[in-house]
Write a protein that binds this DNA or RNA. Sequence first.
DNA 1: GTACCTGCAAAAGCTTTGCAAGGTC
DNA 2: GACCTTGCAAAGCTTTTGCAGGTAC
Lengths: 156, 156
Amino acid sequence: MKHSVIRKKFEEHLRSKNLKFTSQRDRIFELAFQTHQHFTADTLHAWLKKQDGAAVSRATVYRTLHLLEDGGFIESLDTGRGELVYEHVLGHAHHDHLVCMSCGKIEEFRSEEIERLQEQAAASRGFVITSHTLRLEGYCRGCARKQDLSAARQVS
Amino acid sequence: MKHSVIRKKFEEHLRSKNLKFTSQRDRIFELAFQTHQHFTADTLHAWLKKQDGAAVSRATVYRTLHLLEDGGFIESLDTGRGELVYEHVLGHAHHDHLVCMSCGKIEEFRSEEIERLQEQAAASRGFVITSHTLRLEGYCRGCARKQDLSAARQVS
DNA sequence: GTACCTGCAAAAGCTTTGCAAGGTC
DNA sequence: GACCTTGCAAAGCTTTTGCAGGTAC
């Protein structure tokens, strides 16, 4: 999905809920969709502060992130390292995460087969899935090499 | 694994780290392993308070939960409903979770096939997995029926 | 007797909220 | 002009920490 289309959706979303299109919301939306990284509320707040001087208050950052999450524009992810990070999702296929416990890097992956098995496991219990989180924790290629985790690889 | 064996392991663990076996740690350990439910730090603190009067301070509850988690006796799980819950794991096979977003019920399941595919996905990226979290969110059989989510089932 | 522990209360993080001033439509 | 938003500061929550007295071994 093109950025302009997503942006239009955001404006529509606001209008449909009688919410105003403010400069703060605009800037937060743009940052969230420009970055290719996962970010925390605090990181985003810092980015805004660095942008040509005018900071946006923390309260507004939190409020807008909730707004974007409720609207399905972004999703939050608990990394397991004590951080809650966000990522934009509109225009991106669903994916799962590999979190490096050493350097914090987050890689994304997707397996149709896993998705299918999840659905199957849930269905057999009468469970209706609305969403899911699959997070693999460990060490990325670089960090694993540095720490010589070849032994760990065999065990895991 | 029998309770007495697990308990012995706990005592050994304490000894091996030069930690003392105190009545507070004993009570927290026993509660954590007696319950079949998932519990929060606060819930556990409340249970302790109800037990014949003598409360254990919150600080000690938190400290002991960390101790048990570090020792691999319990694991924490973010439910996605804004709660951090614990469950005892020693003597239990690894499993994943189905969390009902309506009633909060947590069901457990395990799929060898999913485990294998996860390992495969990670390995192909040079990633060494140390642990993982798979959480399916949605509605349990009972809640789905109440809310007539048959439509949602077709969509998901 | 020597660590280690506990409880208390204060502190620390992170997030939310009430309110008055300001902006959007 | 009506209503929604923002920023600020205060409040809320959960979790952590410093310290002095208490306890296991």
